[in-house]
Simulated assay, not measured.
Amino acid sequence: MTTRRARFPSAQGWLRWALIAVPMVTAMPRADGLAWVLIGVTLALSVPMPWIQDLGARTPSAVLALAVIASAGALWVVLPGSWASVALFSTTFFVVLRQAPAPIALAVALNAALIATVWVLRQDRWETALSTYAVLAVVVLMGLNRRARLARLEQTELALARAQTANEEHARAAALAERARIARELHDVLAHSLAGLSLNLQGARLMLVRDGASPDAVAQLERAQQLASEGLAEARQAVAALREDAVPVERAIADLLAAYRLDSGARADLEVAGEPRELDPAVGTALVRAVQEALANTRKHAAHAEVDVKLDYADGSVRLTVADRQGRRPPDAAAAGYGLRGMGERVALLDGHVESGPGEDGWRIHLTVPA
């Protein structure tokens, strides 16, 4: 089970699919037995293309893209004059744009071999093969140029995010300093004055009782002493409130994920479902500590793995799911570590429960606490 949101294919996803499907359809009138097989295989492989977000650098998407290149290229060899080369080169472009160096090298080598095969079978002039290699070079250069541009945009966004975080931290530090100053003033002036007033009123009440004063006078002093005591308690609560700076759970988790992104360079996303609300401090602490422990385990056992976190505000409870994407099913742990046991104990004290274990493509932690 994963927490990735179901999303409708993007325009780029549909374009990627169309650049494969349309050439296959145009090749059908000239197809024979083998060509029909290759057309069917290529169309079947193209079905997941719209749902693969930007052909992200993962093993399944790389294998799928290389399989499309191989099947479309084989059709181009069988039907040299068809548009199968469009599917071949367009898929190669998206591989260069998003994949790791190894799949890119395989895709370029596969293209080069297919071009040479077509040239040999057709016995064309060497200029024809050279022009096709030039097209391949242009496709690769366009993909690399687009890739570099996207990398620059990501670096710019990261720099802006860092600057915004620094400004927010500076403003927060200034606010905390001002609140600390006000808290000191309240404590040193108001709280001390109320404490002294309460003691003096208590002494005056005892003197009136000793001297046999009227019950009404003693009752009035008792009432004044009670008001002074209540005012002192409220002043102390105000000082405590000013001293504390409760950070929303969503912000705390987002900060942990931002630190993980900066540390590992991998994607780490937070999805919030339901209507966020103020949580009990113990509940918020349990949720933040759970994400912290999960990220620590990911750094230790699956460095640079992508992470998805989902925080779901349900009626009467809050559910948290942390799943890392290792690209494979991890082995079962021999025994829960101290961190996971501590997480379970903390959640159990809140009458919640924790589930952790391997998923289809990584490790998954799911906890539910009443809130």
Rank of each mutant, 00 (worst) to 15 (best):
Q202H: 13
A195G: 12
S229N: 10
L208F: 08
V288S: 01
Y260T: 09
P215W: 05
L279T: 09
L242N: 07
G196R: 12
H301K: 04
A259G: 14
V209Q: 15
E271F: 06
Q225N: 08
Y260L: 06
D216H: 12
Q225R: 13
A258Y: 06
L221I: 13
D255S: 12
A238Y: 06
Q225A: 15
V288E: 08
A303C: 03
P248K: 04
Q292C: 00
V209W: 02
A191T: 11
G284L: 02
A246S: 09
H192F: 03
A282R: 12
V272D: 04
R299I: 07
G265T: 09
Q237R: 14
M207Y: 04
Q225T: 10
Q226P: 00
G274D: 11
D245H: 13
A286W: 01
A296N: 07
R243P: 02
D308T: 12
Q292R: 13
Q202V: 09
L197V: 09
D312K: 06
L199A: 15
A241I: 08
Q225K: 12
R243S: 14
A235C: 15
A241C: 03
V288F: 03
A296E: 08
L242H: 05
P215S: 11
A286H: 04
Q226Y: 08
E222R: 11
L279I: 11
G203C: 00
A228F: 03
E234A: 13
L311S: 02
A195M: 03
V239C: 06
K300Y: 12
G212Y: 07
M207N: 06
E244M: 09
V307C: 05
R223I: 01
E234G: 07
E230D: 15
E293H: 11
D280V: 06
L295K: 04
S229F: 02
A266R: 02
P215T: 10
S198G: 14
G274Q: 08
V249M: 07
A235E: 05
G274Y: 06
A246K: 10
A241S: 13
V283G: 02
L242Y: 08
R210E: 15
R267Q: 14
R277H: 08
L311Y: 03
Q237C: 01
V291W: 00
A254W: 01
V239P: 04
A303M: 11
R299H: 15
D255M: 06
A238G: 13
L242A: 08
A302V: 03
L270I: 10
V247G: 00
A252W: 03
A233H: 08
I253G: 01
V309C: 03
D255K: 04
R277S: 10
T298S: 13
R289F: 05
A235K: 07
P215C: 05
A224L: 12
A233R: 10
P248W: 05
Q237I: 10
M207E: 14
E271Y: 05
A252E: 13
A252M: 06
A235F: 10
E306T: 12
E306K: 07
L287C: 06
A233L: 11
V272M: 05
A305H: 10
A258Q: 13
E306R: 13
Q225I: 01
N200Y: 04
